[in-house]
């Protein structure tokens, strides 16, 4: 007989593992992916593939030859970074840039700090912001959504609703007038609008989010408070001056807010641990997003707001502890 094993309790272990959680997230991303493929066609597929493959490639290279440690490219985390990075750029971004972005996301955003679980900032967003600042033209040339038949070569480009709004408002055009030019809410919900590859369809992303909450992959705290606080903040401004500030529904359905709230802000490593910490984090993200959208130079602020809040996570973790058992004595 083989030797008996001796270990500390517990002797049971839940079936969940890091990779099962990661693949759960990837599974929940499928609807958003399909919508993106439908509206942006082949370029969307190519950009997603490029991002995933190059993220895994860079992780492999770094783990194998730089760190000389175990290679864990199949745990799913690099795939998620790749998919999310692809979702955050225009579908017609040159593939070379995508590779650079992946290198930055994995190399600078993740592996520099020691790999999975050690990075303070969301790697996909690090990659996105890097591309945004380094290649502003390519990063803001959004293809118009069309059917799947579009050829790679002659992509029609157009502004995203948020860019159109920003441009209009800065030129002094009232919001109501700009709105007439923009797609109606039903189209926004489905995702028939200009924008980054994967962020367009609010409904698909919400579906994925609901799946993840049911499967307990993420908790509701961050998405709900992120979206909620953004909505409340937007509503306040809308009530004050509807001619300059659009209504909250428009704010929620456009840009990367849904994708950010459900997929980027909820990244395990870069979000707080305790429930109250998550709530503070979500509210902070929501408010910052709206502040950037209203007063910043960029039309969109989700990426920056999440990165800024990422920086506060260690502090939030310190300040907001879970409720200890036996802390308040209730007799009843």
């Amino acid at each position: 007989m083989k030797l008996l094993t001796v270990s500390g309790s517990p002797h049971y272990h839940a079936k969940e593992s890091v990779s099962s959680l990661m693949y759960g997230v990837i599974f929940s991303l499928i609807p958003a992916m399909l919508v993106s493929f439908y509206f942006f066609g082949l370029p969307a597929i190519l950009i997603t593939l490029t991002a995933v493959v190059s993220c895994m490639f860079f992780e492999f290279i770094i783990q194998k030859y730089l760190i000389k440690g175990p290679v864990t490219i199949f745990d799913g985390s690099a795939i998620i970074t790749g998919v999310l990075l692809a979702f955050n750029v225009p579908a017609n971004l040159p593939l070379g840039l995508m590779v650079i972005g992946s290198a930055v996301a994995i190399g600078m955003g993740k592996m520099t700090f020691g790999g999975l679980g050690k990075n303070p900032f969301n790697p996909a967003l690090v990659g996105r912001v890097f591309l945004m600042i380094s290649f502003p033209v390519q990063m803001t040339t959004y293809p118009k959504p069309t059917a799947f038949t579009t050829q790679l070569t002659d992509v029609v480009t157009g502004p995203t609703p948020l860019t159109a709004l920003k441009d209009g408002v800065t030129q002094g055009v009232p919001v109501s007038e700009i709105m007439t030019q923009l797609p109606e809410y039903g189209r926004l919900l489905i995702g028939n609008m200009g924008g980054s590859a994967g962020e367009i369809s609010a409904i698909a992303i919400i579906l994925g989010g609901i799946y993840m909450v049911i499967k307990k992959i993420i908790s509701w705290h961050i998405p709900v408070t992120f979206i909620g606080s953004a909505a409340i903040f937007a509503a306040l401004f809308w009530l004050i001056n509807p001619e300059v500030y659009p209504d909250p529904v428009f704010q929620l359905l456009t840009g990367g807010l849904m994708l950010g709230a459900i997929y980027m802000a909820t990244d395990y490593t870069t979000s707080p641990m305790a429930p109250w910490g998550m709530i503070i984090f979500g509210v902070g993200c929501g408010l910052l997003t709206m502040i950037i959208r209203f007063f910043g130079a960029y039309p969109e602020g989700v990426a920056f707001s999440i990165l800024i809040m990422n920086a506060f996570v260690p502090l939030i973790n310190r300040g907001f502890k879970p409720k200890r058992f036996g802390e308040e004595v209730k007799n009843g």
């Binding site: 030797l3 008996l4 094993t5 001796v6 270990s7 500390g8």
Partner: peptide, 22 residues
């Protein structure tokens, strides 16, 4: 020679609390 196999945190402090040793 080991009579059992230890599994867990590789720290003597814990192993010492757990058992006599492999």
């Amino acid at each position: 020679p080991p009579k059992v196999k230890y599994e867990g945190a590789m720290t003597c402090a814990f192993a010492h609390n757990l058992f006599a040793g492999e």
